[in-house]
């Protein structure tokens, strides 16, 4: 599994599709596919999926680990959302904190971690 992170609108998806020569039909936006036989899968906007799972009372921490065990060739793309003023609203704080911790966990498990800034990938692991 490879992890690609970066700020909003930094060209992360374009970077991934070009670098790995993956077709757009392998991209899932904010959702984790189930039952795909081709294990090359790009998850775009993982943070949106995390936000939804938190709102639905799920356990995204556990669910994502189970999912990557089944799709070890996936590329996961997420916005970095923690680099701002800590919000006053508890739910917004929880979303940032849990997304951050999930990304730390995924980064530890990933073969490679890249941060994309203005379309340029910086390999950090």
């Amino acid at each position: 599994m490879r992890l690609v992170i970066g700020g909003y609108a930094q060209g992360k998806l374009r970077y991934v599709l070009q670098k790995y020569d993956i077709n757009k039909d392998r991209v899932w936006d904010g959702e984790l596919p189930d039952g795909e036989t081709d294990t090359v899968v790009v998850i775009h906007h993982l943070h949106n999926w995390i936000k939804r799972r938190i709102a639905d009372g799920g356990c995204p921490e556990k669910e994502i680990l189970q999912w990557i065990a089944r799709y070890p060739d996936s590329v996961i793309i997420s916005d970095e959302i923690g680099n701002g003023i800590v919000p006053v609203e508890a739910a917004e704080r929880e979303y940032r904190e849990r997304t951050g911790r999930i990304l730390v966990e995924l980064a530890a498990k990933a073969e490679e971690v890249e941060r994309v800034i203005c379309g340029i990938g910086q390999k950090i692991k």
């Binding site: 680099n83 800590v86 904190e97 951050g100 730390v104």
Partner: peptide, 8 residues
């Protein structure tokens, strides 16, 4: 340095 939940 780091953001919220960055593991800093």
């Amino acid at each position: 340095l780091g953001g919220s939940g960055s593991g800093k």
